[in-house]
Amino acid sequence: MNITAIRAIYRYEMMRFFRTLLQSFLSPVISTSLYFVVFGAAIGSRIQEVEGVSYGAFIVPGLVMLSVITQSISNASFAIYFPKFIGTTYEILSAPVSFLEIVTGYVGAAATKALFIGLVILATSTLFVDISVAHPVAMIAFLLLTCLSFSLMGFIIGIWAKNFEQLQLVPLLIVTPLVFLGGSFYSVNMLPPVWQTIALFNPVLYLISGFRWAFFGLADVPVGMSLFAIAVFTGVCMGVIWWIFRTGWRLRV
């Protein structure tokens, strides 16, 4: 195991983050505040409570997930797409590192950034609503697993993308809708029965549900199912990445 290389990649990627720390910090704070104003104040005044939790507090896990998922994907996809775009992948490919080490470095850094932003949003939300965390360990675990699995997915997107448009395509066309339809701002039980069934095919639902359970002890789907869904998703992403490096798909001609 080339630990030095993992550390080198991780450090290098994190430096990019610290270079733009203020932007990284400000944009989630502002967007979270906006969500609270729009969803919390405007809609929340009409919906008093969801399953015994005030609406403002109810949307916090969903908001955190929304940002964490989009941040994980954009961080990781950009981290590998940009070197591909400017041609610096030559060095990673010619270095004595295994795919696991490359992925650990890049995905680890992307997940760390996403985690940081998730925590910032959580902190920001306490300015607007009172929240208590019923299962703190589970909360952190869900957060970590989400950062990790979606960073893995982002890494795949970054390798797959042939141009900047494609880089934006998946997050925009697939991920954002999935997050919104995954119960970020409502309980799935509030949907008509048909849509409830359809929603069960949305993997993001399991994440948000599990995460919300960690806060309030209530979930749309059983917690075990949530964990299982994340595990399967992470496994699939790892499998795809393993295949990419084995065949060199879009990396090594």
Binding site: N2, R7, A8, R11, Y12, R19, F82, T88, Y90, A95
Partner: peptide, 26 residues
């Protein structure tokens, strides 16, 4: 390897990019 094309991350500092190379090779 010194490649033919100049491929370097434009916003990175010289020191950091050289240090990365050393680390990558363990």
């Amino acid at each position: 390897l010194v490649p033919q094309e100049v491929a370097l991350e434009p916003f990175e500092k010289v020191w950091n990019t050289v240090r990365l190379s050393r680390g990558l090779f363990g």
